[in-house]
Structures are given as C-alpha cells and as structure tokens.
C-alpha cells in the first residue's frame, strides 16, 4: 500500500535540540526492530549545541540504488527508497559511501545495509513515521503542505540539493527561510561553514574567565 500522497516529510535541523527521542522511537519501527536508522550527530560538540538529525531523503534518482552492484535497493512507486533487499544485499558498502546525505548503515555481521524506509509499515497505512510522531521541536515533521505553511510562516520547504556539479531532488523536504533567495540548498558550499549557536572567541574568553573565577 503506498504512502498517502497528501502527507509529506519535512526536516528542519535548525529546530533539533538533540534529545534523541527520534533515535529511540526509530528502534520501535517494525521493519528494523531494535536498530535505529536515524543519524543524529553533534556538529561540533566542543563549541556548539548544534545537532543534526538526518533521515533518508528518498532521492528521485537514488545514488545508493544506482551504485548497488546487487540491484538490491528499490524505489517504490510512491517515491520511498526501500532498505536493501535481504536476499540480494551483499554488504559491499557502496550505498553507504555513495549516499550524498550519509544515511545508510552497514550491519556487517548480517551482511546487510539498513536504512530509513520512512516507517513504511506505518506511513503506508496513513500513520506518521515514528521519529516525526515523537519529535518535540518539529525538526522532523510529517503532515500536509497546507499544515506546514500555516504552522511555519517564516519558512518554506525545498527539496533540491546541490553537491558540487550534481543536483539531487528528494521526496523529503527541508525548511529554509521564506525569504531566502534560493531554490535549492547548496550543500558543498558549506564545506567550511562554522556552526550556529556556537561559543566563538568571545564566548571562549568568557568561559575561560569563569574557569579562572572558579579556580580563584
């Protein structure tokens, strides 16, 4: 049964508070019970609280599937890129290393790539994915386009990403400022981008001052 067309998945890493609720909820998903497919990283833990939760973006032309020598990754008619087919996956690691978003995980012992399938057991019957149903800050959100526009008037969704010369369009949307003069997110342009909400030189000086004061 396909994912109902009206519902869309939106991610907004800026809203992530790093609570790990999505990680725990993801482990409850029936298609990969006990293993979380959410990739949650601190961007620069020593200097910033910024975190990024990443689910599979479900590319229109999935690089992971194209580079798979076993033809083990299929995209269903509703645009969901499924996890590796268990009879076919030969654990070559190509998909893990080719995904431009860094999503798939390799379960070496089981000779199997595992990745987010947008909780297909739930979304295919009209329910929200586990992660989006528990995310307290709305960094991972599932609903209709009308709802997200009403709830977040300062943002708008885009789903085109640029990696060097390569443009990738996805099923999952990313929220950007409503007035941002872009129609795509240029990922490789951020190669040397610093974190947000960081402790910069001034904050470092303040912190060192606090340490000094405590020491005194």
């Amino acid at each position: 049964m396909p994912v109902p067309e009206r519902n869309e998945f939106f991610i907004d890493p800026n809203r992530c508070i790093g609570c790990n609720a999505c990680v725990s909820a993801c482990m409850e998903c029936d298609t990969h019970r006990g293993y979380s497919m959410i990739q949650l990283d601190f961007i620069d833990r020593a200097r910033s609280p910024q975190t990024v939760p990443v689910v599979c973006m479900h590319c229109d032309s999935p690089t992971c599937a194209e580079v798979c020598p076993a033809d083990a990754i299929k995209r269903t008619g509703d645009g969901v890129v499924q996890t590796a087919s268990k009879p076919r996956c030969i654990a070559c690691n190509n998909c893990v290393l080719a995904c431009p978003f860094g999503i798939p995980k390799m379960h070496s012992e089981a000779n199997l790539m595992m990745k987010c399938d947008m909780c297909y057991d739930r979304t295919s019957v009209g329910k929200k994915p586990m992660c989006a149903s528990v995310c307290p800050s709305g960094a991972l959100w599932f609903g209709t386009m009308e709802e997200i526009r009403r709830l977040r008037p300062r943002s708008r969704p885009v789903r085109t990403f640029r990696f060097g010369n390569q443009t990738i369009t996805t099923k999952v949307w990313m929220m950007v400022p409503v007035d941002a003069p872009v129609d795509r997110v240029d990922v490789t342009d951020a190669m040397h981008e610093p974190t947000v909400g960081r402790s910069d030189a001034a904050a470092d000086a303040l912190l060192s001052g606090l340490w000094t004061a405590e020491g005194a």
Binding site: P13, C16, F101, G102, I103, A190
Partner: peptide
C-alpha cells in the same frame, strides 16, 4: 556529509 547538510541550512 550529514554535518554539511545542517551547516548549509544554517547558512
């Protein structure tokens, strides 16, 4: 790559 996604959005 995952970090870049967030940094590009933050930008």
């Amino acid at each position: 790559r995952r970090a870049l996604l967030a940094l590009a959005q933050g930008r």
